[in-house]
């Protein structure tokens, strides 16, 4: 690890100011950034820790009935706080990494990084959540823009995520056996106005919505409704842990299980 300056502001405004510095980088729970720095693959000059910002922590609900999760909230807290209000989201957060990861890693860090195998992007996209930053609100459908790419501008801070609560939902995660990230993960959420199906781990373009399944499930929310569908292997990730065809098959299997589990 190379030397760096470390600042830990107490407010979002102070953090935003600190991030305007040369080669400054926001630090959430550090579950990706710190290993990357240790391998000398990243060398920011200033780390701006978001962990001292009280206004970015915790889970509450708003007048619209949405669940509002502060960007600096660790996975373990999300899992605990949403256990009765949004069980599928609680399940997703509770299956990330191991207890150490879940107590350090934050929802904001995961979403800002947008790893193609991360879990939260599927939960956020599948819920049709709203990403709130220090400058604006971004719909989930506009936020995810491909592997490790998001709508966030340089220095923009993800302060909150607002989840509308569906009638039914489930999260199905098939583990990449070594990293225990999602080899494929599928989040299915049934709302009054339709069903959303979001898939992580599978596509070379990062998290995506399986629109054919959404249409079929919106008409008939049962596993049988997607029996005749298939996911093309083109554009799916192919690596040591699974071919594109395998991942495509898992998308359907897991979607079916999520519908049954919802």
């Amino acid at each position: 690890m190379h030397n760096f300056e470390f600042v830990k502001p107490g407010t979002v405004a102070e953090a935003a100011a600190a991030l305007t510095g040369e080669e400054a980088q926001a630090l959430g729970g550090g579950q990706t950034l710190l290993p990357t720095m240790k391998q000398r693959l990243a060398a920011p000059e200033t780390l701006v820790s978001l962990n001292g910002i009280a206004e970015m922590k915790g889970v509450c609900s708003n007048d619209a009935g949405e669940i509002c999760v502060g960007g600096g909230t660790p996975h373990a807290v999300v899992s605990r706080e949403t256990a009765s209000s949004y069980p599928a989201l609680s399940k997703l957060a509770g299956m990330i990494g191991d207890p150490a990861v879940r107590n350090r890693g934050t929802i904001g860090g995961s979403l800002a990084n947008n790893d193609p195998a991360a879990c939260y992007p599927a939960g956020v996209l599948g819920s049709g959540a709203t990403i709130v930053t220090n400058t604006r609100e971004i719909a989930a459908d506009d936020y995810f823009q491909g592997m490790f790419t998001t709508a966030l501008e340089e220095g923009e801070i993800l302060t909150e995520v607002r989840f509308p609560v569906p009638e039914k939902a489930d999260w199905q995660k098939f583990l990449q056996p070594a990293s225990r990230f999602s080899l494929v993960g599928v989040f299915v959420a049934k709302f009054a106005d339709g069903v959303r199906v979001a898939v992580t781990g599978a596509s070379e373009d990062g998290v995506f919505r399986w629109s054919e399944a959404e249409a079929a499930l919106s008409a008939d929310f049962s596993a049988g409704a997607i029996a005749g569908l298939s996911v093309p292997a083109d554009g799916m990730i192919s690596d040591l842990h699974g071919t594109g065809a395998y991942r495509a098959s898992l998308v359907k299997t897991l979607t079916s299980r999520a519908v049954s589990g919802a």
Binding site: P177, A178, S179, D239, L240, H241
Partner: peptide, 23 residues
């Protein structure tokens, strides 16, 4: 069931960490 020390055709180790080598 789990462990695989795999190289690509260029001799790069694909399973060079616990992110890819399954203990």
């Amino acid at each position: 069931l789990l462990e695989n020390c795999a190289y690509d055709e260029n001799g790069q180790l694909l399973s060079g960490s616990y992110m890819d080598y399954t203990m």
